[in-house]
């Protein structure tokens, strides 16, 4: 086995220019850096009841999770990297936002249920131009 190893490395030495070795080294480093990066938070949704964290769900696998809200059961659905509040047993709600969410920091909520879900992480504007136009809050 060791013999094979030496054979391999000597072949490598013969087959490569210095530039090749630079390519190998740098590309390897970049790949390793990419792989060991901490798990980006945009892949999880946090579920809160009455502002207490109940659990975090991964956005990478589709699921439907029931959660006990103030007015009954609320289902949180994860599909295709997005999340939403699926059903709730109370009648007509004053929810602030109840559609699909997928970007970091986005929120969907059922106010009377006391259930709030949010994609983990801080909101990141995609371009600097968007950063300029960004509002820190909406008044209404």
């Amino acid at each position: 086995m060791k013999n094979l190893g030496f054979k391999f490395f000597s072949l490598l030495k013969k087959a490569t220019y210095p530039a090749d070795r630079w390519v190998m080294a740098i590309s390897a480093i970049i790949l390793i850096a990419l792989v060991i990066q901490p798990h980006r938070a945009g892949d999880e949704v946090s579920i809160y009841k009455d502002n207490q964290l109940l659990m975090n769900l991964s956005l990478n696998s589709d699921s439907i999770t029931p959660v006990e809200g103030r007015l009954g059961e609320v289902k949180i659905e994860v599909k295709d990297g997005q999340a939403r509040l699926l059903e709730y047993s109370s009648l007509r709600l004053i929810g602030t936002k109840t559609g699909w969410i997928k970007n970091r920091g986005e929120i969907a909520v059922c106010v009377p249920c006391g259930i709030l879900i949010q994609i983990k992480g801080d909101k990141k504007p995609a371009t600097t131009e968007q950063k300029e136009k960004l509002f820190d809050g909406i008044a209404r």
Binding site: Y48, D50, N51, I94, T96, I107, G114, L116, D122, K123
Partner: peptide
């Protein structure tokens, strides 16, 4: 930014 559900709103 941190958000909580209070006073019947966000």
């Amino acid at each position: 930014t941190t958000t909580q559900l209070l006073m019947g709103t966000l």
